[in-house]
């Protein structure tokens, strides 16, 4: 926005100070990830003694060997993929048609339906009634229950509805002239025109599913159904006070710390892979749903 050459000496000094501060904050943000990666590749002994600072000490893959041999790790990983893909598809199947319907001016009771949906953002029954309801529906310890029970949130619907409402009427008219019905208009006009908005929502849904933890912990009992985050939680809380493990690992070259770090690395990698795609969209996306004049 400004030309460096036009800057006074004071302004240049200011800009440099700010750049340094930004650099420090960025480094502070990045450091924990580097530290965890370093721990995951270090020997158990070095990690336990607190010798790891920036780079792996006595580099070894023992911790990765330990978790990759654990069948539960792979089961959880697979489950997380199922929850993420199934959940995201399920959400979109609800959200897109609903947002379209709410954006139609001819929908009778439009105000009521909008309020009906938005109200849940302001008031919710809380943990206990939600849990009891899931139990009454027979959705405890059910993978389908996790996918269906968390499919929709009001915010995503409103976000997409706002976007649909901003599409000029003229785009739709041509399709209407050709005799298209609402399903066709949605499919051939609205969805192609809303790709950025839908991509934003999809990516947020994917991340939310990938990271979902609390309800999976509460609702799922079978080890065969738990997602990666719950497995990670179990590992962190079990390993640290498991004496038997402490004896085994000393000989094997890994420790509770290195195993925890290795699982963290394994579960962050997919997020890092999709992150560049998310980044392209989320800056616009967050504003789409944010404060609108």
């Amino acid at each position: 926005m400004m030309n460096w050459n036009l800057y006074s000496r004071g302004d240049k000094f200011f800009a440099i100070i700010v750049s340094v501060l930004i650099g420090m904050f960025t480094a502070a943000t990045l450091y924990p990830f580097i530290y965890i990666a370093a721990v995951s590749f270090s020997s158990g002994f070095a990690a336990q003694a607190g010798k790891v600072v920036l780079t792996p000490i006595d580099a070894t893959l023992e911790a990765y060997g330990y978790i990759l041999k654990d069948p539960q790790f792979w089961i959880s990983y697979r489950n997380t993929f199922i929850y993420t893909i199934g959940g995201t598809v399920m959400s979109l199947l609800f959200i897109i048609p609903c947002a379209y319907a709410l954006s139609r001016p001819q929908l009778k009771g439009r105000r009521f339906f909008n309020l009906f949906i938005a109200f849940t953002m302001w008031f919710n029954a809380g943990l206990i009634p939600f849990f009891l309801n899931m139990r009454d529906l027979g959705l405890l310890d059910s993978m389908f229950g996790i996918i269906l029970g968390f499919a929709i949130n009001a915010f995503n619907i409103i976000l997409l509805r706002n976007f649909f409402e901003s599409i000029p009427q003229s785009f739709e008219e041509a399709a209407r002239m050709d005799g298209a019905n609402d399903f066709q208009v949605l499919w051939k006009v609205f969805i192609p025109l809303s790709k950025p908005a839908i991509a934003t929502i999809t990516l947020f849904l994917i991340v939310a599913r990938w990271n979902g933890f609390f309800w999976a912990m509460v609702l799922l009992q079978s080890e065969s159904k738990i997602p990666l985050q719950v497995f990670l939680r179990h590992t962190i809380s079990n390993l640290s006070d498991d004496d038997e493990f402490a004896i085994v690992q000393t000989a094997a070259g890994f420790s509770a710390e290195t195993v925890t770090a290795a699982i963290i690395v394994c579960s962050i990698i997919p997020v890092l892979i999709v992150y560049p795609f998310i980044q392209k969209y989320f800056e616009k996306g967050i504003l789409l749903g944010g404060v609108k004049e």
Partner: peptide, 18 residues
């Protein structure tokens, strides 16, 4: 600096605990 927003709380807690 946007990245940590996308990391799950279990991982955040794991990092803090470590």
């Amino acid at each position: 600096v946007y990245l940590p927003h996308f990391i799950s709380s279990v991982i955040i807690a794991g990092i803090v605990i470590t």
